[in-house]
Structure formats: C-alpha cells, structure tokens
Lab assay of single mutants.
Amino acid sequence: HDTTVHINGLRIEVHGASEEILKWIEEAARRGVEAEEIKRWVEEALK
C-alpha cells in the first residue's frame, strides 16, 4: 500500500508497506514511540 500515517501530528509517507507494517506503526504510536523514531524504522524496513 501507499499510505500516509499520521502520528502525533507528524505525517509519515509509507510506500509499499504491508498491513503488518501499518499495524506495527499504529501499535508503536499507541505505546508513545517518538514519531521520528518510527519513521526511521519504517524507512529501514522498506529498504
């Protein structure tokens, strides 16, 4: 999927993410993980 995830006011563009990654992002956000940190993880995961 190409999608934009909104976390604590930060937009994260996610290209080619699976449902699993999207669920993981939402879970991390709920746990209060910094949005910048999530963004870094997602970029690494999608390389």
Rank of each mutant, 00 (worst) to 15 (best):
E34F: 09
A17K: 03
N8H: 04
E27Y: 02
E13S: 13
K39F: 10
A29M: 14
I38F: 02
E13Q: 10
K23F: 07
T4S: 14
E44F: 02
V33P: 01
E44G: 10
I7V: 09
H6Y: 02
A35W: 14
D2T: 15
R11W: 12
A45L: 14
R11D: 15
V5H: 05
E20R: 06
I38T: 01
D2C: 14
R30F: 08
G9Y: 00
H6E: 15
H6S: 11
T3L: 13
V5G: 04
S18V: 08
A28P: 00
E43I: 05
I21H: 03
W41C: 10
R40F: 08
A35F: 14
L46K: 03
G16I: 05
K39I: 14
E26P: 01
R31D: 11
E19Q: 11
L46E: 03
I38H: 00
K23H: 14
E36W: 05
T4H: 15
E43S: 03
I25V: 09
A28N: 03
I12T: 02
A45V: 11
K47Y: 03
E44K: 10
A35C: 06
K39N: 06
W41Y: 14
E26I: 09
A29I: 15
G9H: 06
G9W: 00
L10T: 15
G32W: 03
G32D: 03
H6T: 15
E27Q: 11
G16Y: 06
R30G: 12
I7H: 03
A28M: 14
R11T: 15
I38P: 00
W41M: 11
L22D: 02
L10R: 06
E20H: 10
E37S: 09
V33M: 12
E43D: 13
L22A: 02
K47E: 10
G16P: 04
I21N: 02
E36H: 12
N8A: 08
L22N: 02
I25H: 00
N8Q: 07
N8C: 04
K39T: 05
E19G: 09
W41E: 03
V14M: 07
E26A: 06
I7Y: 00
A45C: 11
T4F: 01
E13K: 09
R31N: 13
I21K: 01
T3D: 13
D2L: 15
E43Q: 06
A45R: 08
E43A: 03
K47D: 09
R40E: 07
E34D: 14
I7S: 01
L22F: 08
H15V: 13
T3G: 15
A29K: 10
G9F: 00
A28S: 06
N8V: 03
L10K: 07
R30C: 07
E43H: 03
E37N: 07
R11M: 15
K23M: 12
E37L: 13
V42F: 06
K23T: 08
I12H: 01
K39L: 13
E36Y: 03
E44Q: 13
E19R: 08
L22P: 01
H1W: 11
E27G: 04
R40Q: 09
E44I: 10
I21W: 04
E13Y: 03
E20I: 08
K39G: 05
E34L: 12
E36K: 08
V14S: 02
I38M: 05
K39S: 06
A35L: 14
R40H: 10
I25T: 01
I12P: 01
T4R: 05
I21S: 01
R30W: 05
G16W: 06
I38D: 00
I7N: 05
I21D: 03
E34V: 12
R31S: 12
V5T: 04
I12S: 02
H1L: 12
E43L: 03
E43T: 06
E44N: 14
W41N: 02
I25D: 00
K23D: 09
R11N: 15
I7R: 00
R31H: 10
E26M: 08
V42C: 02
G9N: 08
H6L: 09
A45Y: 13
I38L: 05
E26V: 08
E20D: 11
R30H: 11
K23Q: 14
L22W: 06
D2F: 14
A28F: 07
R40C: 05
E19C: 07
H1Q: 14
I21G: 01
A45I: 13
L46A: 05
G16L: 08
I12N: 02
L22I: 11
H15S: 13
L46C: 08
H1F: 13
R31P: 01
N8L: 01
G16V: 05
V33G: 02
I21M: 12
K47L: 11
G9L: 01
L22Y: 06
E19A: 12
A29Y: 11
G32Q: 05
E20Q: 10
V33S: 03
S18F: 07
E27A: 10
D2R: 15
E27V: 06
E44H: 11
A28R: 01
K23V: 08
E43Y: 02
G32K: 03
V42D: 00
S18Q: 03
V5Q: 02
T3A: 10
G32L: 05
